[in-house]
């Protein structure tokens, strides 16, 4: 069963369409990366899942329930970390952690202490005196210290320093080991690449790509740089499956569709290969490609 099921969900704010028939699934037990630039609809999706916003059309299922009508019951089984954590000015970090934990149905004191240690967080400071990163840590500790099935994390590391980000990755790896489902919205690609089993890429309120990293790569192009024995024939640049080719005497740099890779290779070897490198696309390139194409 899927922990999250969104089927053609649309949400408008006045004239702007924040979600435009968004469809995505997150399987139980997986760490799912939710990628997209600012304003693409990531936070709106999470707020629909939290029952804070009501979808205009489409269906949403969360942990087998309806996120709008079953909100409080479902919320006891999940924890949420917003992208911009706002703390009450007159409550300490420790008080916020305890309050949110209790509202969710209780925290594990040992785990709370371990997480405070791990994230190097002082729980006695008042809300306003924390930095952005520390406010985020408060919400992270509160979320991770309760025993829930699903974690909804909205850009949780945007304020963390590299050291803390490493800690965060280790903690999420632990969580996966315990069988929790995680929806991790982010625009930090290396983080998603490290942590996530599957990825959904969202653009203008629609999921444009979804799958495992391997699947996504399969559909894409490989960067090929080759040094040939003979000058590169002009015709190669316009061969099927070859894109963005740059010819420089004996040297060719191009993107090749994975489906045409075999064909291109045999043409190259017919010309006599002196050296060749082929690089699979990084998530970053995948991502940029989607956005570049949308721009055109």
């Amino acid at each position: 069963m899927n922990a999250i099921e969104l089927q053609a969900v649309t949400k408008r704010f006045g004239r702007t369409t924040a979600l435009d028939g968004l469809t995505m699934q997150v399987a139980t037990g997986e760490v799912h990366g939710f990628l997209g630039p600012n304003g693409s609809g990531k936070s709106t999706t999470i707020r629909v899942l939290l029952g804070l916003l009501r979808a205009d059309s489409g269906t949403a299922r969360l942990l087998g329930g309806d996120p709008w009508s079953d909100a409080p019951a479902l919320h006891r089984r999940l924890a949420y970390v917003p992208g911009d954590v706002a703390l009450w000015p007159n409550l300490t970090g420790g008080e916020v952690i305890d309050l949110l934990g209790r509202l969710r149905g209780g925290t594990d004191p040992a785990r709370r202490a371990a997480l405070l240690e791990r994230f190097d967080l002082d729980p006695t400071k008042k809300g306003t005196t924390y930095s952005k990163g520390n406010r985020q840590k408060v919400a992270l500790v509160a979320a991770l210290a309760s025993d829930v099935e699903l974690l909804l994390l909205d850009e949780p590391t945007s304020g963390l320093d590299p050291l803390m980000e490493a800690q965060f990755r280790a903690v999420i790896a632990d969580e996966r080991g315990r069988g929790r489902t995680v929806l991790l919205s982010s625009h930090i690609l290396s983080e998603v690449e490290h942590l996530c089993d599957r990825v959904s890429i969202i653009r203008s309120g629609q999921v444009v790509e979804s799958g495992t990293l391997a699947e996504l790569r399969h559909l894409t192009r490989t960067l090929v740089v080759a040094e040939l024995a003979a000058p590169v024939p002009e015709g190669l640049a316009t061969a099927p499956g070859v894109h963005d080719a740059e010819l420089d005497g004996h040297r060719i740099t191009c993107q090749v569709d994975d489906t045409e890779l075999g064909q291109v290779m045999s043409r190259l070897s017919a010309l006599g290969i002196r050296s060749i490198t082929s690089t699979p696309p990084t998530l970053e390139e995948l991502f940029l490609r989607h956005y570049d194409e949308s721009g055109r």
Partner: peptide, 14 residues
């Protein structure tokens, strides 16, 4: 407005 309510409503509080 400040996002505090969102934090509370994401828990079991109705």
């Amino acid at each position: 407005e400040r996002g505090h309510a969102e934090l509370v409503l994401s828990t079991g509080a109705t």
